[in-house]
Write a protein that binds this DNA or RNA. Structure first.
Lengths: 206, 206, 206, 206
DNA sequence: AATGAATGAGGCTTCATTCAT
DNA sequence: AATGAATGAAGCCTCATTCAT
């Protein structure tokens, strides 16, 4: 299909259906093990229709990755209180990330997908890089404000933060954790802040 | 091929070549996107030979997973000083893990690979569960010894530890990090201990 | 669509647009390699509209072949002076054919198109057979009038005439020739007349 | 398949079988209407084997075109007496071409095949250009030797020669001609020589 | 008349696996 | 041990055609 295909209201809905089903199936079975027919059957349409909305299998994937990236960032932005101190903001961002990623597990599972395609790989990486850069910025603020020690590299710290978040959400998705999502999010926040600040009780909140 | 196949010296070498190439390719492209031909071409042998050494595609994968698991555990064991306190042991185990995983990156990437096969998935999960259980045990010792606060769930803490390790090693593998491996390992140790103990400087001496 | 469809003025124009685009595309890429969408896109209409004007893909093709045949014959008829001698008439017909075929190149390329359909193949053949029969008749007249030697089969001669014409026009269409069309037509006339009228034995050595 | 696949004796035979069947089917039904399965079934092998020997459908076609071009040129070369005068050589070349093209009709039908691919189109054109250039050279010799008049463009004459040959062979292939092949070839020789050597003005009408 | 949506048969191609030598 | 050849199931994608609006 051409990029500029004009879609009617119905068309947009149908496309979204396909995207949703694809996200689910990709995350359940993996990219390679999900067939176009599976997606179409799940959406209740004929095989050929897929190609009315997407150029090919990889294109759906690409579209999912992009939209997911945007939504995560928005969720983080909404969770962060602009008036709070940077450490609190990090905690809020961390909690929001864990919550969002666990809730939209089917989307985020896609990130782990394998790919031979360089372009796609780049796209995937970009996502976490943005996340990491956002975090690094907050960490620098916190250092400048004297809230956390300055003896570690902010980028390295940010990498560890992002890593923890991703891993916890992932474990939750795979059912390795029975914990309610809110408790997991709050645990992640505490963990990250402790690791950043050196000692939570003394420095942060009560 | 039968499991009992007695291999000559040359045979064992050839098999190892195939295993090594398979590990590289699987981790670069993923399981599904790696073809038997790719592995054989990389090893410089004809496609038919693959089945002289392995029963099928999945068998190589299984063999890789198992051997990798063993080696990681051995590396951790060797790094841990049996006479040290539990927190120090966690730090040592963490450092060893990061170092080992980064060094054998192509092997460990396999853990992230998707699979539809339940049996295979179980195998993969078992690996990190063992790692996590080892860590949780140490954490419980540390709590019992009063070295770290008892107000978090040891299993949850262990999960976070494992997650950080995996993510950092992974980032190193993808070249997102220019840090020397030793510094990365040592950073991981500090991060984990701070997060566990609340404040590294105060509690855990040097 | 029904054959009886009464078209408005605009309707006839739209249909002609589709026919023209189809002719161009068929001749450029061949029948099989031309998709309905291509034709519609070239005409700037939606795919569905095609079937308002034509029963199916083959129907356009048929319509093109038939109309082209008629027009060629008319062009030849108009170019031939009914009072001239047969050889001159052949020359005139040849010139007119080359000119017409080169000018309507996109139509005539269709004749070379492959097809599996027997009915369609028959239609295509009929066209050149009529052309050939017309020529053969003139050749017989010329023989009867003693203008050209009688030692060759008139049908075979006609076949060669038609072949030359088609090939030259074709070469012109493919841009293999920079010659102005009028010069090409006149060359074709001379060539054909020489070949028909010449005495090979007399002229060329042994 | 890679270009450098090393084939055993058996392999080369099998490949030739596939090429032969492909040539037959392409010429009978056209390129587009011939399926890979058809070729394989005709050769009595499984569908997948096709791709052991050829990269894809178009690759067979390409290989056929190239081999056919070589063989035609060789046939012409063998038919031409190097000691004869140029006009006789042209006649010999013409006869050989008609005979060869009619005999290997299934190969030459491929030349008329449609294609969307520019590279392929170029390949096809090159074939007739070589043929035409060979002929043009002989014509120039004949002019230099005073055997044929110099008042026409040698390239244009060569084009007409090639066109006649192709058209006659083609008509024979399509069964529009019942003439024995030898008579057809000899007719083509006479026709061409007459057209080249004749003086139209002198012989016909005004 | 015109459009965008939908269908589904069918072709091309891939690739794990097996076979013969 | 090792190779090239062979198989066939299965997936991706195309496209003529039809439908609903």
């Amino acid at each position: 299909m051409s990029d500029e295909r004009r879609l009617t209201e119905q068309g947009r809905e149908r496309k979204q259906q396909l995207l949703d089903r694809a996200a689910e199936l990709f995350s359940e079975r993996g990219y390679a093990a999900t067939r176009i027919v599976d997606i179409c059957e799940a959406a209740g349409v004929a095989k050929g229709l897929f190609y009315w909305y997407f150029e090919n299998k990889e294109a759906v994937f690409r579209e999912l990755v992009v939209s997911m990236r945007l939504r995560l960032r928005r969720a983080q932005g909404e969770a962060i209180d602009p008036l709070a101190d940077p450490v609190t903001q990090i905690r809020q961002g961390t909690e929001a990330s864990v919550r969002f990623m666990a809730e939209h597990a089917s989307y985020f599972a896609l990130l782990e997908v394998e790919t031979r395609d360089r372009e796609l790989a780049r796209l995937l990486r970009t996502g976490s890089e943005v996340h990491q850069a956002d975090t690094a910025r907050l960490i620098r603020h916190a250092m400048a404000a004297g809230l956390i020690p300055c003896d570690e590299d902010p980028d390295l710290l940010a990498l560890a933060v992002v890593g923890t978040v991703a891993h916890l959400a992932n474990a939750h998705r795979h059912g390795r954790l029975t914990l309610p999502i809110d408790e997991l999010a709050s645990f992640a926040g505490r963990w990250v802040v402790r690791a950043l600040a050196g000692h939570d009780r003394a420095l942060i909140g009560r």
